[in-house]
């Protein structure tokens, strides 16, 4: 099990919830649990963005979503270009924003890298994250996405 607390995890859930509400003025449905508890799997979608943590924490925070959902988000943001490059930019920016917003709880000693993005296939997340990861499943409009918090305190 991870050495992060329930309060730590809550900050990511709040950041995810806040992100979708601010972007669309609609609440996303959120279902969350530790991967090891087996209630939710670390679902991989078409596109994934992640940031790496350093400082008092190590690990990564992932955001994975289907192309159709990211395209809809771009539309809401007023972005006319919906190329693969823009879609990847969007998942990276979302991962960065969720982790950055969670820093309100963790403080500046949780350092955040620039995002890395990739087109991903099913089960990719399952193969790279640890069993102690926390999975936040998001349902926004008719789309599903996942945020996987795979972090540990180092100090």
């Amino acid at each position: 099990m991870s050495n992060v607390t329930e309060k730590d995890i809550r900050s990511f859930v709040d950041a995810v919830s806040g992100y979708f509400y601010q972007i669309s003025e609609e609440q996303a449905e959120i279902n969350a649990a530790f991967l090891v508890e087996g209630e939710i799997s670390a679902t991989t979608f078409d596109l994934t963005g992640y940031i790496t943590l350093s400082g008092n924490f190590s690990g990564r925070v992932y955001f994975s979503a289907p192309r159709v959902m990211v395209t809809r988000l771009l539309l809401i943001m007023g972005e006319a270009d919906r190329s693969e490059e823009r879609l990847l930019d969007a998942v990276g920016e979302i991962a960065n924003t969720i982790a950055g917003n969670a820093r309100k709880h963790f403080g500046e000693n949780m350092e955040i890298s620039v995002p890395v993005t990739a087109a991903t296939e099913h089960d990719w997340l399952q193969s790279v994250v640890s069993p102690r990861s926390y999975v936040i499943l998001v349902k926004w409009k008719q789309y599903k996405a996942s945020v996987v918090v795979d972090i540990q305190r180092t100090r």
């Binding site: 992100y19 601010q22 972007i23 920016e93 960065n96 924003t97 969720i98 982790a99 950055g100 917003n101 820093r103 309100k104 963790f106 403080g107 500046e108 955040i112």
Partner: peptide
């Protein structure tokens, strides 16, 4: 204009000479 919503980051930028701070995502 940043996603980093901790007070220390805002303060650091202001000390370096920034004159305003807005958090992402913004309307």
């Amino acid at each position: 204009v940043s996603a980093l919503s901790d007070k220390a980051t805002a303060l650091k930028a202001l000390i370096k000479g920034a004159r305003g701070f807005i958090y992402k995502p913004f309307s």
